[in-house]
Design a protein around this nucleic acid. Structure first.
Length: 573
RNA sequence: UGGGGCGUCGUCAAGCGGUAAGACACUAGCCUUUGACGCUAGCAUUCGUAGGUUCGAAUCCUGCCGCCCCAGCCA
């Protein structure tokens, strides 16, 4: 009886706990288990290991947030280590850009900046150790021969004819490889594992290749370079990493890393693999992004349409919005998952709604003359900077007889009673100021509307009238006398197809309208004071920032980071 | 006839034998000096599928089916 009660109590308390406890992903669950068992004495030490051969993109942001974020959460730290084992592809300029991007995201590796190349000597010594153990050998097979000997996915491979050289011979040959006595590609050092393994990575993988290339850090010291597979696990081990978090493509390599570490009898991190981040309407393949840049389809790696961190930054995305996005997506092992770009955009809007000042900007101007408003009169109005944040204060806006409104806010005949923007005979409110009614649309010879003639109601000053009549439509405006001219760039998805990555001809799906450049936009003058890197809401349009590359004092250029949600155009359809 | 993974709402994703969280998206309505924001409501009788075990299964067992990754001296 009593044991039954205990069980029920246990169940109840479990339920209470589970309803309060946050759900954990499989990586945090593994760490919890380690902490419970004491495997790493409660230490969580991760690393982020990029290859300095390109720019970081949103997919890397996920890996960064996971490795840095989880370590931080468990009171641990994260190393930044450049995996620079292939001198033909790596450059210092990429390393610098990568560091800048990680810092921008808000993560810090302290004084723990490392390079796989820091360990080249140790790696060499360990290779000698494996030769001495009889589990590594120098092979003379060419690349093509090796491929033939490797077998296929369903057939076992054949052992290399050089596999049974004596330890002395291997030692001698390996040293000569190091001294540069053989031409590039003539020999390799291979691990002696199992040519019949179902796991291709275990079929005597290459540990060293001969490569006469100047390394961006070690210069011309080496003629041989370790492969990633040989360097990676040991680098983690040397740095006493506890949890090596990486993407699913290294799942198959884990047995190999474990094998090396076991042979060497050194510190053994736990590797865990998660699914990479894919996002719809974009691509996250370094190779394909490079193509966009090299074929001038975009304006460089930091083009605001690019999913690179530098592109997102220039577009006006905040580090927080990127981190929130990654957190909300969660971590799992579903390889083909594709995140909705709308979630990233939602996070940005959510953040900026709370923090950005509002300003009025007319993107496609239409001149309005308020015929009953005194000429040469300028009236000052106070405008709230951010209705979501009183501390943001107020600013002054100046109203006059001639203003600009958005051309799209006027049609001659209202399409239905749900339409409450401006039309002939209709009344709308001008934000912060007066009601106006449209009397006449002036057209040019070809019938284009070039000017509106309206009358205002002096009683409506401030945006409401004594009679309390309802005016549903509120338009933003800018006075002609103090409007500032600017260029505004509107962006939309770089691709028209949800999963352009699936296609090899992904370039065919590039959205020809992903960039719309508007010139002659009319802005509220206070916008000239917007600081670089600061976001601002253009009322009824979206969030904008100054373009860091093309903007100048005399010719301001703004980027649209994200639109405001718009239920009207949805309804219209 | 190889090895490794994955299949829960349109999307991402919880769930770990006790009767399907949450977020985004979407829909309807309210509010509104941004058709924004906010608020309210709706949105998986069902967890790839077929059996089995069990009082009870998304969760355990078995068999199918589907999708993805691996044959660089790239990382």
């Amino acid at each position: 009886m009593s044991s039954e009660n205990d069980k029920i109590n246990e169940l109840n308390s479990d339920n209470e706990n589970s309803s309060k406890t946050e759900t954990k992903d499989f990586i945090r669950t593994i760490i919890d288990q380690h902490n419970k068992s004491g495997r790493f004495n409660g230490v969580v030490h991760t690393r982020f290991p990029p290859e300095p051969n390109g720019y970081l993109h949103i997919g890397h942001a996920k890996a960064i947030c996971i490795s840095f974020g989880i370590a931080e959460e468990y009171g641990g730290v994260t190393n930044l280590r450049f995996d620079d084992t292939n001198p033909t592809k790596e450059e210092t300029k990429y390393a610098n850009a990568i560091m800048q991007d990680i810092k921008w995201l808000g993560f810090d590796w302290g004084d723990r900046l490392f390079h796989a190349s820091d360990y080249f000597d140790q790696l060499y010594d360990w290779a000698v150790l494996l030769i001495n153990k009889g589990v590594a050998f120098v092979d003379d097979l060419s690349a093509e021969e090796m491929r033939e000997y490797r077998g296929t996915l369903t057939e076992a491979g054949k052992e290399s004819p050089y596999r049974n050289r004596t330890i002395e011979e291997n030692l001698n040959l390996f040293e000569k490889m190091k001294k540069g006595e053989f031409p590039d590609g003539a020999k390799t050092l291979r691990a002696k594992i199992d040519m019949a393994s179902g796991n291709m990575n275990m079929r005597d993988p290459v540990m060293y290749r001969i490569m006469r290339a100047t390394h961006h850090r070690t210069g011309d010291k080496w003629y041989i370079y370790p492969t990633y597979d040989w360097a990676h696990g040991q680098s983690d081990s040397i740095e006493k990493i506890t949890h090596s978090l990486c993407d699913l493509s290294f799942e198959d390599h884990r047995p190999l890393y474990d094998w090396f570490l076991d042979q060497l009898e050194v510190h053994h991190p736990q590797q865990a693999e998660f699914a990479r981040l894919n996002i719809n309407y974009t691509i996250t393949s370094k190779r394909k992004l490079r193509q966009l840049v090299e074929q001038d389809i975009v304006d460089g790696w930091d083009d605001p349409r690019m999913p690179t961190l530098s592109g997102l930054r220039r577009r006006g995305f905040t580090p927080k919005s990127v981190r929130t996005f990654v957190e909300k997506l969660g971590i799992a092992k579903k390889r083909d998952s594709v995140a909705d770009i709308a979630l990233l955009e939602h996070g940005l809007r959510d953040e900026l709604n709370a923090t950005s000042s509002r300003r009025m900007a007319v993107l496609k101007p239409l001149k309005v003359v308020i015929t009953n408003y005194p000429e040469n009169q300028i009236e000052e109005f106070e405008a709230v900077n951010n209705p979501e944040d009183e501390s943001a204060g107020v600013r002054k806006v100046y109203f006059s007889r001639e203003i600009y409104i958005e051309a799209g806010d006027f049609v001659e005949v209202a399409p239905n009673r749900k339409y409450f923007r401006l039309a002939l005979g209709k009344e709308v409110r001008l934000k912060h100021t007066y009601y106006i009614t449209c009397d006449e649309a002036v057209k040019d010879d070809s019938g284009n509307i070039v000017e509106l003639r309206c009358t205002y109601d002096p009683e409506s000053k401030g945006g409401s009238t004594p009679d309390g009549r309802k005016v549903r439509g509120t338009l933003h405006w800018v006075s002609t006398h103090d409007a500032v001219d600017a260029e505004v760039r509107l962006y939309s998805h770089l691709f028209t197809k949800e999963s352009p990555d699936a296609d090899n001809d992904f370039l065919e799906h590039v959205n020809p309208q992903s960039l719309e450049i508007l010139s002659g936009c009319k802005l509220e003058p206070s916008l000239l004071n917007l600081k670089a890197g600061e976001n601002c809401q253009f009322l009824r349009h979206g969030y904008f920032c100054i373009d860091s590359k093309n903007s100048s004092e005399d010719k301001p250029v703004f980027n649209r980071s994200v639109t405001l949600k718009d239920s009207w155009t949805v309804k219209k359809k």
